[in-house]
Structures are given as structure tokens and as C-alpha cells.
Write a protein that binds this DNA or RNA. Structure first.
Lengths: 122, 122
DNA sequence: ACGCTGTTTTGAGATCTGTCAACCTAGAGG
DNA sequence: CCTCTAGGTTGACAGATCTCAAAACAGCGT
């Protein structure tokens, strides 16, 4: 990294909606890049991208860790670590209900990442 | 990488257009995740995200490295390294014309990444 | 209280990443 | 051929990341 000044945090991105025009229209300032990069970084691992997909496409909007773990040939702690990374990136929320923990996607940030990549011109 | 079976490569993603529905609609298979994750990973660094933004928003569709480097307080080799990462992720193309090297965004992959994140429901 | 199952945390090791200094290559212009 | 500038490559180092085993924590049963 480097030194960022004002520091937009990732949770800020959930509140305001448009955040910024597509990168094909305007250069994003350094602070915006610093705020958004961690979200892309979190999606930059095959396991996490697949986890994110499973969570986002869950029929009830949420999915149990017990349904996520057996989909991979990875240990429980490793899946838990990746889920924590997605959580800290602000991409998902977790809720414990009794024995099981359920994960749910946060649509706001995903929408912002998508709009950032969407080119409105050629 | 590792050992994936069919192995979609990143350059494949440029050809076919829709590649896959949004992750909020269907789980993406492991091969798709493995193919797309490197692109997200490349965007997961603040410097590269800003570089990508500068390239994608360049007025003539392309921008000289000599215009990119002075925008950062980083050494030339470091910028060159990040540009190589973006190149290998299939996000940009480079062309040398005389003394200077020009970078240009590849719209296909960006569009696919965006559509992957775009939720059509909820 | 005890044990059992699901999930997270901790600790450790191997690999990867961001950065720079030093060096190399490509082209322009004498 | 020589020199100058624009970029890229190599080597090295500190710090981050991925993974697992072991331990800890949280609830549910009995």
C-alpha cells in the first residue's frame, strides 16, 4: 500500500449509491482506488469468487457455512478464513442462528463494483 | 496456477461474449472462477486500479506510459511491473510506437466482469 | 456437567506480492 | 558507431497470503 489521506472506508461504499462513474469515463482518484481495491482483491481468489457466487445465488438469499464447506476440497478453517476475508471486504454479512452460521451477500457494494466496470461508451 | 481440467484461459474470455450469468443468479463453476479470479486480482491493488482507470478513460482510447508514470510516487520499474500484471490479466494491451509504449483497455473482459457482478434481481 | 457437532481463532510454514536499485533492450538522432 | 531517453527485466528483500493442524468457542443433546 502507501499512505492514504482521507480514507474512504469500505463500509462508506454501502451507503452512498453511485460512488463514482465508470472508470472508462473518468479517472478515479487515489482515495477511491484505495477504497475499492480491497473489494476486488477479495474477489481475486478462485475459492472466494466461488464462495461469493454461492452466497449471492443462494435461493433464500442466504446460505449456511455447512453447505459451503463440503463444496471444496479445503479444510474448514481455510473456508472460514476466506469467508472472513469476504466479510472484512464488506461483501457479505454473517449471522449465527443456533448451531449454524448463515452468510448473505451485500448487494450495495457489488452494484458499485459493477457500475465501476461498466463502460457506457465504446 | 494449479491443475484445472478444461482450463478456460483469460484470453478465451475475450472471444465469447456473455461467458456467464451474474453470480447472483447461478453459482459459477470452479473453472470459471479460476479463469476470472486473476482479472479481479489484478484490479485488487490501488495502483493498478488507478492505472486501469487512467487507461480506460484515456481520451484517444490509449495512453502513453510516459503519462502514467509521473502520476504516481513510484519508481518506473514498479509501474512497469503493475502494467505487466494488467497485461497478463488480459485487461490491457500494449503497443510500441517509436520511442513510446501505449496502453489500451480491452473492453471485452471488463464487460464480462461487470456483468458477472450485476444483479438482475433483489 | 459432559460430550458432540459446527465454526472460528491461533500458530506455523511455504509461497506470492509490492517495491526498489541495477542492469538491459529498443528506438531516435547525431 | 555512439549516446541519449523511454520502458522493461532481474535480483533481492520485507511483508502479505494461502493452507493446514491444533486449539478454542458456541449451541444443542443427553
Amino acid at each position: 500500500m502507501s499512505k492514504q489521506a482521507a480514507a474512504l472506508t469500505l463500509t462508506d461504499l454501502d451507503a452512498g449509491q453511485p460512488c463514482c462513474p465508470p472508470i472508462s469515463e473518468h479517472r478515479i482518484p487515489a482515495e477511491t482506488a484505495a477504497a475499492l481495491a480491497p473489494a476486488f482483491k477479495a474477489l481475486g481468489d478462485p475459492v472466494r469468487l466461488q464462495l461469493m457466487s454461492m452466497i449471492a445465488s443462494a435461493p433464500d438469499g442466504e446460505i449456511c457455512v455447512c453447505d459451503l464447506t463440503p463444496a471444496f476440497t479445503l479444510s474448514g478453517p481455510t473456508i472460514s478464513h476466506h469467508l472472513k476475508t469476504l466479510r472484512e471486504a464488506g461483501l457479505v454479512d454473517a449471522e449465527r442462528r443456533g448451531t449454524w452460521v448463515y452468510y448473505r451477500a451485500r448487494p450495495g457494494i457489488m452494484r458499485q463494483l459493477a457500475s465501476l466496470l461498466t463502460a457506457d461508451r465504446g
